[in-house]
């Protein structure tokens, strides 16, 4: 079937270049979440769409080898766990659950706002991995049904 081998050479070559630009833009949105519009959710969806681009262009076999799907699942679960750990660290350091206990720094700096950027990064990883994995599982199901 076509989906196993991916699309044509033109699409593959274009994807090879553009995927990194899209991923970079996603990281930019996540890292500047406390300064500009966007944040963990928006940037995570951008990264998930970039990975989805790879899946559509290169097909299932290549993506499974290149991305190590099992590793993505562990990343997804561990980011959720780390959010909880960071929230519990608020009790220990700041006095309340989910407290912003780090130094807030100066306004408009990249390294400012205490724990907010860390939450943003973790939420970004979580959203990106979970959305991509949902599409991955759904696409696999459709493929096997079509084969029968």
């Amino acid at each position: 079937m076509k989906t196993q081998n991916g699309m044509t050479l033109i699409v593959k070559t274009v994807t090879r270049i553009t995927v990194w630009i899209i991923v970079l833009y996603g990281f930019y949105i996540i890292l500047h979440g406390h300064l500009t519009p966007g944040g963990g959710f928006g940037g995570g969806v951008i990264i998930a769409l970039a990975l989805l681009n790879v899946l559509l262009a290169f097909g299932r076999k290549f993506t499974e080898k290149w991305l190590h799907i099992g590793f993505l699942e562990k990343l997804e679960s561990s980011s959720a766990l780390l959010i909880l750990v960071l929230a519990l660290a608020g009790i220990w350091a700041g006095g309340s659950f989910l407290a912003n206990f780090l130094n807030t720094g100066t306004l408009f700096d990249l390294f400012s706002a205490g724990t907010l950027p860390i939450y943003n990064i973790l939420i970004g990883i979580k959203v990106a991995m979970s959305l991509f994995l949902v599409v991955w599982v759904l696409a696999g199901l459709k493929f096997e049904q079509g084969e029968e």
Binding site: H34, T104, G105, L107, L116, N120
Partner: peptide, 8 residues
């Protein structure tokens, strides 16, 4: 909070 983006 020290965040310029108030939504965040």
């Amino acid at each position: 909070t020290g965040a310029a983006n108030l939504v965040a």
